[in-house]
Simulated scan of single mutants.
Amino acid sequence: MVYAIVFFLGKQLKLIENKYVYVPHLHEDLGKNIFLNKVFLFYKNGYSQIGTPFLKNINVQVEILQHLKGNKIIIFKKKRRKGYKIKNGFRPLFTKIKVISFLQKE
Rank of each mutant, 00 (worst) to 15 (best):
V2N: 09
V2A: 01
Y3W: 12
Y3D: 04
V6I: 14
F8R: 10
Q12L: 00
L13I: 11
I16T: 15
I16G: 04
E17G: 03
N18H: 13
N18S: 14
K19D: 15
Y20T: 14
Y20H: 11
V21C: 05
V23G: 03
P24M: 13
L26S: 12
L30Y: 02
I34V: 12
F35H: 11
F35N: 10
L36R: 04
L36K: 05
L36D: 06
L41Y: 07
L41Q: 06
L41F: 10
F42H: 04
Y43K: 05
N45R: 06
N45E: 10
Y47I: 15
S48F: 11
I50G: 00
G51R: 08
T52E: 10
P53G: 01
L55W: 10
K56Q: 13
K56F: 00
I58S: 07
I58K: 03
I58A: 04
N59K: 13
V60E: 06
Q61L: 13
V62M: 11
V62L: 09
H67K: 04
H67C: 01
K69F: 11
K69H: 09
N71C: 02
K72E: 15
I73E: 01
I75N: 13
K78R: 11
R81C: 00
K82H: 06
G83F: 06
G83P: 05
G83C: 06
K85W: 00
K85V: 10
I86V: 13
R91C: 03
P92G: 07
L93Y: 08
L93W: 07
I97C: 03
K98R: 12
F102C: 12
L103K: 11
